[in-house]
C-alpha cells in the first residue's frame, strides 16, 4: 500500500518535472523562433532588392527611387567620427579603472556615473545633442554633432569591454614588468595592452554596431539631408534614419525592405566578427 503511494508520488513528481522542463524549453524555443522570424522575414523580403545599383546610386525622389549611396557615406562618416572620438577616451578610462584607480570614494562615483550613462535612453542623448552640440555650440545639424553624440553613447560599451579584457591579464605580468624597473605606463603600453587587443577590438566592433543602428539620437543631431556630406559640418542621413523615414512615410516598400535587410546584414557581420575575435584570440595566457 505504502509502496503504491510512493510510486504514485514519484510519478507525479516526474511528470511535474517534465512539464517544468518542457515549459522553459517552449519559452526558449519561442525566443529563438522570434529571432529567426525577424531576421528571416526581413532578409527574404529585402535581399532581392539589394543590388549594385541600390548600393552605388544616389537616392532619387526622397528615396522612393534610386539607391542609398549618399546614405551609406553618411552612415560611415557619422559612425567613423563617433568611434574615432570615443575609442581613445574609452580605452583610457578603462585603463584608469583597472590600472590606476585606488578604490576610493571618487572612483566609486565615477564608476556609478559610467553605469548611469549606459542606461540613458537614446532620445535623451538626442535632446542633449540637439541642445548642446547643435544649438549651444552652434555646430548645427551635422556629422560632427551626431558623431559627438554617438561617442558619448558608445563610451560605456567601449569602457566595459576594454575593462573586462584588462582584468583578465594576470597580475604576474604587471609584477614582472615593474620588477624590471619599468614604469606603470611602460607596463601598460608594452605588456598589458598587447594582451588585450582582442578584447579592445571586440568592444570597438560592438560600439560600431551600436552606432550604426542608432536612430533617435542621430535624427535629432545629424538631420536628414540626402546629399553626400562634403565636410563634417554638413548635415547627412544615416541608414537607420533613412529606414525610419521610408517606413514612416511609406515611400517605397521595396527600398524600405532593402535598407532594413542591409542593416540586418551589417548586424550579423558585426556579431560574427566580434564572436570570432573573442573565441579565437581571447585570453589565452598559457598556464
Amino acid at each position: 500500500m505504502d509502496r503504491i503511494k510512493h510510486e504514485n508520488l514519484k510519478r507525479i513528481k516526474t511528470s511535474k518535472n517534465l512539464l517544468f522542463y518542457g515549459g522553459t524549453g517552449v519559452f526558449a524555443a519561442i525566443t529563438l523562433a522570434t529571432l529567426i522570424i525577424i531576421i528571416g522575414y526581413i532578409l527574404v523580403n529585402g535581399l532581392t532588392h539589394i543590388n549594385l545599383e541600390f548600393l552605388t546610386q544616389e537616392p532619387k525622389r526622397m528615396g522612393k527611387e534610386g539607391g542609398i549611396f549618399s546614405v551609406i557615406i553618411g552612415t560611415l562618416m557619422v559612425t567613423g567620427v563617433g568611434i574615432l572620438i570615443a575609442t581613445p577616451i574609452g580605452i583610457a578610462a578603462a585603463i584608469y579603472f583597472t590600472e590606476y584607480a585606488k578604490n576610493g570614494k571618487g572612483v566609486t562615483i565615477i564608476r556609478f556615473f559610467t553605469e548611469i550613462l549606459a542606461g540613458i535612453p537614446s532620445i535623451i542623448f538626442g535632446l542633449f545633442g540637439f541642445a548642446f552640440f547643435v544649438i549651444f555650440l552652434g555646430m548645427g545639424w551635422s556629422v560632427i554633432s551626431g558623431g559627438l553624440t554617438l561617442a558619448l553613447m558608445v563610451l560605456p560599451t567601449l569602457i566595459r569591454a576594454t575593462e573586462e579584457s584588462l582584468k583578465t591579464v594576470p597580475m604576474a605580468y604587471r609584477e614582472g614588468s615593474l620588477s624590471l624597473g619599468a614604469t606603470r605606463w611602460q607596463t601598460i603600453v608594452k605588456v598589458i595592452i598587447p594582451c588585450c587587443k582582442p578584447g579592445i577590438l571586440t568592444g570597438l566592433i560592438l560600439g560600431i554596431g551600436r552606432a550604426i543602428g542608432e536612430t533617435a539620437a542621430v535624427m535629432l543631431t545629424v538631420g536628414g539631408s540626402l546629399r553626400i556630406p562634403t565636410s563634417i559640418f554638413d548635415s547627412t542621413r544615416t541608414m537607420s534614419v533613412h529606414l525610419y523615414v521610408l517606413a514612416a512615410e511609406g515611400l517605397s516598400q521595396e527600398k524600405t525592405y532593402a535598407t532594413a535587410a542591409l542593416l540586418i546584414i551589417i548586424v550579423l557581420l558585426i556579431n560574427t566578427i566580434a564572436n570570432l575575435i573573442s573565441s579565437r584570440l581571447g585570453g589565452n595566457y598559457g598556464n
Binding site: L32, I39, I212, G213, Y244, A247, A260, L263
Partner: peptide, 24 residues
C-alpha cells in the same frame, strides 16, 4: 550558442524592430 543568439537579438537596431512591427 543560445547566448550568442540572444546577443544577436540585442544587436538588431530598434528601428528594424519598429519596421518589423509595422509590416508584421
Amino acid at each position: 550558442a543560445f547566448k550568442s543568439a540572444i546577443e544577436l537579438l540585442a544587436g538588431i537596431p530598434s528601428v528594424v524592430y519598429g519596421f518589423f512591427g509595422l509590416v508584421v
